[in-house]
Amino acid sequence: METIAFYLFSILITGLFLVTVMSKNILYSMSALAAGMVLISGLFFILGADFLGAVQLVVYSGAVMALYAFGMMFFDATRNVKEKNSSGAAVFLLSGLSAVVLVAIFAAPSIGANIKPLVTGTKGLDNPHVIGEVLFTKYLIPFEVAAVMLLVAMIAGIILASKKMDKSLSEVYIDALPEEELKEQK
């Protein structure tokens, strides 16, 4: 049962992320990315990491994707992305090579054989309880630092995005267009 779920999820995730990377339309790729995030949380549930799966659903497919969709209002998302690609073969060779190297590193049995679990938490509790227990004892300081970092990121995001808010974006966009495209529009 788990095997079927794993293969179903992994094939769907790979396909959706390929759509994300290859698609010419930003809206398609964003939707595919959001769907892939939801399916990744399914993988976490199979692995027994319930809390992580819930956080993945809330933060990634909820907050991050909503933020992207919100930021998309500022960009012209319906237009197709025009790109000139230099050499496709080199790109696929490089990324394929890096995938092989990664598999070789991860699947090396000699290193993984003598790893012992250090942080196990209280036995018998369910996953969110154990996560909370470990997070607020052993990992308290990283947790606080992450909270401060999120605060700093929030302030930075507000300040960066609200610069020149008094000027309409369409005016700025017309100013920034090159001459030929302006003539085409007229």
Binding site: V55, L67, V130, A146, M149, A153, M154, A156
Partner: peptide, 21 residues
């Protein structure tokens, strides 16, 4: 070992702030 899940949590936090900035 639970450390892996906690590191994944911190990675999610970092990703969220990276997206905001």
């Amino acid at each position: 070992d639970l450390s892996g899940q906690l590191f994944a949590l911190f990675i999610i936090a970092i990703a969220a702030s990276e997206v905001a900035v």
